[in-house]
Amino acid sequence: MFLNIQDVQKSFENRGNKEQVLQDINLKVEEGEFISLLGPSGCGKSTLLNIVAGLLSPSSGDVFLDSKRITKPGKDRGMVFQQAALFPWLSVEENVMFPFRKEMSKKEAKVVAQKYLKLVQLSPYAKHSPHELSGGMQQRVSIARALAMNPRVLLMDEPFGALDEQTRTRLHDVLENIWLETKKTVLFVTHSIQEAVKLSDRIIVMGTHPGTILKDIHVDIERPRDRHLEEMVQYEQMIMELLKAEIDKVVEEELQYEASH
């Protein structure tokens, strides 16, 4: 098994209260799959991604990549955050070269950076400062930076959540093309049903309090998916139905919280 999440539990201490964020998470991922973790806020999907990244450790259970247990962050897992997280003191190109300081010469690193900037169609902006780019362009640089390390898995934590609708739609196409081209395994966190259906081979629908896996859905729609809108809508409705109970639960909890405070 390529990526194996086994019996993962995670709880946080919150003002003396122990809060169970993830419970009994089991997930097996094949190489080359595009997998979305979908769920309402509070379902622990980002927490799970951070555990796979090695930025958080599970309270119990294990995550294995290529049969190796994950204990800390590493270059075999590239991460794209909701914010682009580019370093403002470096140029766009230097940002993409950042992970290569030790393993190759500057010249070689430049070649690699150019290749991946081209993949996200930003090679003319290599010498620019990150802030000179729009939000969507910055996020593309961030994707290029993660891909340039040639990781085994690409982890994406609501990468388009902070962008406007049009930019997001465009970046879905960019990401789909990159995925078709590189065949990277992608673990993609989102709360947008549409986004999940558009991009994924498999959608892991998660419920809240505690975060559990509700359903593992295989999306059998040909790519590129824009041409199969009807089928997409069917999947969207099915998932919407599934999540409705969860979203009601979240709303109810929020109301209760408000009433009791």
Partner: peptide, 21 residues
């Protein structure tokens, strides 16, 4: 903290995290 997390996922930690980030 995001800069530090990002650097960690790129395999940079310890002294080199301090100097480079």
């Amino acid at each position: 903290p995001l800069y530090i997390k990002a650097a960690q996922t790129m395999g940079v930690g310890g002294v080199s995290l301090f100097i480079r980030v």
